[in-house]
Every structure is written in structure tokens, then in C-alpha cells.
Design a protein around this nucleic acid. Sequence first.
DNA 1: CTCCGTTATTGACAAATGTCAATGCAACTG
DNA 2: CAGTTGCATTGACATTTGTCAATAACGGAG
Lengths: 189, 189
Amino acid sequence: MEEEIFNYLTQFISLQEEEKQMFRELNLIKQYQKGDVLLREGRFAREYYFVMKGCLRSYYLVGGQEKTTAFFLEEESIAPESLVEQKPSEYYIRCEEDSTLLVATPDMEKRVFQAFPKFETLCRVLSERELSKHQTSLANFIRSTPEERYQDLQKNRPQLLQRVPQYQIASFIGVTPETLSRIRRKQKD
Amino acid sequence: MEEEIFNYLTQFISLQEEEKQMFRELNLIKQYQKGDVLLREGRFAREYYFVMKGCLRSYYLVGGQEKTTAFFLEEESIAPESLVEQKPSEYYIRCEEDSTLLVATPDMEKRVFQAFPKFETLCRVLSERELSKHQTSLANFIRSTPEERYQDLQKNRPQLLQRVPQYQIASFIGVTPETLSRIRRKQKD
DNA sequence: CTCCGTTATTGACAAATGTCAATGCAACTG
DNA sequence: CAGTTGCATTGACATTTGTCAATAACGGAG
């Protein structure tokens, strides 16, 4: 299982045995169950998450209604705003499948960066890439209709549609479950 | 004018005279005019931008129509997806006011990071913060109606509403100019 | 297998938004 | 000053989406 992290990381940098050893000693890998809530509204986040296997979802609770704002599948990561900005979280993060996560704290991050500065470079690069991906998501959302957003998901994240319930997808593309159901019906013709 | 950058940076890290000197020698500051296009669809971006004074806007051209996806005012920055991902840009970046920008290339970035590693830490932290801000923007967009988005802008970026034309704001919150006009009328009652 | 809770679909109607065309308004130009 | 241009507003009507209520489809628990 650790090997999967190393495979992922060596896409970007080379890894010495010494560095791998440090990772192993940090005990980053944790198991969670479907339904586990990793972060709640009003709480302070303490951890970064990287999804090795499974699915996380972030959502706001607005007047008793869940508003889904993101899904995180394999090889995607979350740096909760609450942690980065040191303020109470406005949203929830929840496991939507049994999941294997890489869990890191700012503390561990600091130690790793001091021992192996190239990880800081890696984190900077990954976070810039993540940022540009998010700019693109926001752009896609702004410039398209709910129907187009659904078609985008069908094209770009087909696995997601198979793995999470439709009412969460509906919320994610900004419509009610009824409307999504009608969009789907229209497509069949 | 250079002093403004230093003021901004010393919010996050301390600066030695030596480091300030390096910045001065890089000649980062450039002037642009309203209407200048910094990046076009299909081109490769070569630069990062940081707005010291003025206003940039990013937009897609979809069927001849501009879809505004972001505004960048003072102390906000752009790392174009095109540059980060090394692919042709899908959108335009344009000066909406005469602007003073800090312009950096990956090359310059690399030299600075090698000479003063703490700038890499700074960039990582800033880009993480930027990322978490963007996640919040996307979340706000997903979970609210056009009317609420406009109210958000009134509360959180009132200067923006004074500085750019309404049809760009309309596009940014995902409606037509007519609809935004009606939202504004409703507010007066 | 049935029962039960959750999710998905459908219909009828209300509300919001888009579209198109006309008008107003302010700034710039000659 | 008149004429032009770009932006904002308004009205009439079409389309999309939301809301509410009913029903269907599905899966897990017993």
C-alpha cells in the first residue's frame, strides 16, 4: 500500500531509500469507513488529506440542506481552508466510501520539509497545479448551464457518476434532484 | 513603488537588504494600459502576474460571447493554468484599468528560489492560501443563487462593483445583464 | 420473502431567468 | 452643438428551474 504513494510521488521527483523510510515512519496511512465525518462546521481542521482509495465529499449545511461543493477521488487532496487560514470550518468533509487516506499534520509537514527541502518544492508545485485546476472548475461552472455541467461530468469524471448518489451530483452542479432527473430523461431521446 | 512590494512581503517574512536588492535588479514592475491583453486563447502563457495597482479580468470566449470568470484587484495574483500545466490557454487575461503589475517568469522564480529558499516557502504558503480562497469561491458559487452572489459581492468586494461595468459582473455571477438589472431593481424596494 | 428507509422519477404549477426588441442615458468625438 | 457609441434599463413573452406531492425503484435488515 505504501508503494502506491511512492509511485505517485515518483511521477514528480525521485525518491531515495532514506526518504521512503521517513515516510514509512510517519505512519501516514489511515483507514476510514463510509459515513465517517473528518471535519465538521465550526471545528478547526488539524489535518491534510490525500485520497489513496475511496471518496470524500465536502458540503455546506444551509438551512438544513446539504450543498455539495466538491468530491475527492483517488490521487486528489484536500487542504481544508480551516487549516490554512486558521479559522473554524464552514463546511463538512465526509467519507462517502470506505477509504484509505494519507493523513498529514502541519507538524509532520514541517519536519519533512526541513529534512528534505525538495518536498517543499513538490508541495508548492502540486498546490499550484491544484490551484489552476480549481480555477478551471470555477470557470467551467460559471460559464455553463446545469445541463452542460452534467455533460462535462459524464465526459471528464465518469467514475464519479457511478460512485455517488444522484442527489449529491445534483447539488454539486447546482440544481435540485428533480431537475437533474429531467436532464437525464431529455438525454435519452 | 518598489516599497509597496516590500510592505506586502514583510506581512509574511522578513526581508534583508540583500534580498530587496535582488528584487530591484529583476525589474519586475511593469505598466499596462486599459485594454491590453496579457494572454489570449490558444497561446502559451509565459508569466505570472501580481496586481500592485489596477484590475485584470479573465474570460472565456464561448460562441462570440465573453464569459467572465475572475477579477484580480490589488494584491491578488494569477498563475495562469496555461503556464502551470504547459498547455495552450483556454481563456483571455485583459487589463480593465491602467495597471501596475509585478511580472515574473518561471526562470526568474527559479533563480530567486535558489538564492533565497525562504521565498519558495512563501510562495508555497501563498499558493495554498490562494487555493483555499478559490475553493471557497467555488463553494459560494455552487451553493448560492445569482441574487445571493450579487449580495456577496456587495458585502465582500464592494470596490469591484464600482470599478467594472455591470455586464461583466453579470457574466461573473452567471446571469445576463438584464437579470442583474432586475436583481438591482428589486433591492431598491 | 416482506418490510422499510432511501433514492429516483414524474406531474402540475409557481417562480426565476433567458431572449429579443425598444428605450434611455452618459461619455466621447468631431 | 449634434451624432455616435457603449452600457443600463424596461417590457413582453418563452424557457428553464424550483417546489410540492405522489409514486416507483432499489437495497438492506429482519
